[in-house]
Computed example of a mutant assay.
Amino acid sequence: MTTLPTRLRIEKGTAYALFAYDVGQSVDLDEAERRMTTIKERSRIKHKRRAPAYFDYTPAPLRIGADTEPLAIGRFRTNPGVDLLLYDFGAVSVTYTIPLSGAFSDLLSLSQDLYDHEQLLAESRRRVEDLLAAVGEAVERPHVVDSVEDYVIYHIEASAPSLTGSDLIKDYAQAVAQVLRSESQSLAEQEIQDAIGYRLSFGPDDIAVIDWNAALLLGQDMEAVLAVLEFANVELLEMRLLDRHLDRALDEAYETLSKHRWTGLHLPGAVRTELEPIAQLQVDSAILFERVTNTLKLFGDQYLARIHRLTSQRFHLESWDASITRKLHTLESIYGKLTAQAAARRLEVLEWIIIVLIGLSIVVSLIAGPGH
């Protein structure tokens, strides 16, 4: 076990435990806001520097505050209260805040305690279920999926001795990597560089170090970075779920295509009945994909755009994006083949009907005889 730095102390800081859930197909945020009686507001990103106002959430998610008793996490405790951020594409992000102070080395024990923390997971799910019950019909096709995407952000606002971003990486790389990876053992240099390799600074006194399960922020006025990381965590959840739904749709479409390939007789309307669920999944998936990828607009703030791009690379969102796009195209191709087969079969049936009618007319004329 390695010895973490003991002389470095956190004077002021906060840990954010995030839990992302999928709760439905879509949400009418205006209706949800009307139904909520607790503290609420439409969330906007506070830019670190000036940027066009329209580069923000579209539409703005609904932030809801709820009272809760502090929860013990090792020697730390959460603040009373919890924030829930409700997105129009049917996702909720639940955030618990934990005040930080004391030795930097204490962050390692906190990170290990937060890793798959069952009480926080259960509490966050209960909060989401309560929210779903409160907003009622504002959510289309309400449900709470079993999958949850959790993430932890450690934000250090002040330390002793005072640190710059370069100081943190140069002098405390091992400690930072262990905290991000929740790993008590000393890490190899390659593992350290992988953990701290995705980082970005706006000025000399701040830095954002982004890893797969956690991020560490140093500096003041990091609310916008927190918002981008929170959204990216939700985005990852939605991409995973969407990819899973498309796998199911492709299995159903391929099964339908294989069945039609080997059987020639179908009752009228049978093909259309089989195609309807595939078409519905295709449309739902495409709409959700567009909503998720177009919710956050950051092109006017280059720093936040770079933060989102860096987080996307760390979370492999581009790979999920490419996989979903490919599966949507494949599903569209299979649906097109099934539709073409159904159209060809209808034409074939019509041809046989015409042939039968012609044959019947000839038979009738022969039976009736000349003069009739």
Results as ranks from 00 to 15, higher is better:
Met1Cys: 14
Thr3Leu: 12
Thr3Ser: 14
Thr6Trp: 13
Arg9Ile: 12
Lys12Asn: 08
Thr14Pro: 10
Val23Ala: 03
Leu29Pro: 00
Glu31Thr: 10
Thr38Asn: 11
Phe55Lys: 08
Thr58Met: 13
Leu62Cys: 08
Gly65Tyr: 00
Asp67His: 15
Glu69Tyr: 12
Phe76Pro: 09
Arg77Leu: 07
Thr78Val: 11
Val82Cys: 08
Leu84Met: 02
Leu85Ile: 10
Gly90Lys: 06
Val92Glu: 01
Ser93Tyr: 07
Leu110Tyr: 00
Ser111Leu: 06
Leu120Asn: 00
Leu121Glu: 05
Ser124Lys: 06
Arg127Ala: 09
Val128His: 06
Asp130His: 11
Asp130Phe: 04
Leu131Cys: 01
Val144Cys: 06
Val145Asp: 12
Tyr151Cys: 09
Tyr151Thr: 04
Ile153Val: 10
Tyr154Val: 04
Ser162Trp: 14
Leu163Cys: 07
Gly165Tyr: 05
Asp171Asn: 14
Ala173Lys: 02
Ala173Glu: 03
Ala175Glu: 07
Val176Thr: 03
Gln178Gly: 01
Leu180Ser: 01
Arg181Pro: 09
Glu183Met: 09
Gln185Ile: 14
Leu187Ser: 02
Leu187Pro: 02
Gln190Pro: 12
Glu191Phe: 00
Asp194Phe: 04
Ala195Gln: 08
Gly197Val: 05
Pro204Thr: 00
Ala215Leu: 06
Leu216Tyr: 02
Leu216Thr: 03
Leu217Glu: 10
Leu218Gly: 05
Gly219Met: 01
Asp221Ala: 09
Glu223Gly: 00
Val225Phe: 06
Ala227Leu: 03
Val228Pro: 04
Val228Ser: 01
Glu230Gln: 13
Glu230Lys: 11
Phe231Lys: 04
Glu235Gly: 04
Glu238Gly: 05
Glu238Thr: 01
Arg240Gly: 02
Leu242Tyr: 07
Leu242Val: 07
Arg244Phe: 14
Asp247Lys: 00
Arg248Val: 13
Ala249Asp: 05
Ala249Asn: 08
Leu250Cys: 02
Leu250Pro: 07
Asp251Asn: 13
Glu252Thr: 10
Tyr254Lys: 15
Tyr254Phe: 14
Ser258His: 14
Trp262Ser: 13
Gly264Lys: 15
Gly264Thr: 15
Leu265His: 13
His266Gly: 05
His266Pro: 03
Glu274Asn: 12
Glu276Lys: 09
Ala279Gly: 04
Gln280His: 13
Leu281Pro: 01
Val283Leu: 14
Val283Gln: 11
Ser285Arg: 10
Ser285Ala: 11
Ala286Pro: 05
Arg291Thr: 08
Leu298Cys: 03
Asp301Gly: 00
Gln302Phe: 15
Gln313Thr: 13
His316Gln: 15
Ala322Ile: 09
Ala322Phe: 11
Ser323Asn: 06
Ser323Tyr: 01
Thr325Asn: 13
Leu328Glu: 05
Leu328Asp: 04
Leu328His: 06
Thr330Cys: 11
Thr330Trp: 15
Ile334Phe: 10
Ile334Val: 15
Tyr335Asn: 05
Leu338Gly: 02
Ala340Met: 13
Gln341Tyr: 14
Ala342Phe: 07
Leu347Asn: 15
Leu350Gly: 12
Ile354Asp: 11
Leu360Arg: 12
Gly369Asn: 08
Pro370Asp: 02
Pro370Lys: 02
Pro370Arg: 08
His372Tyr: 08
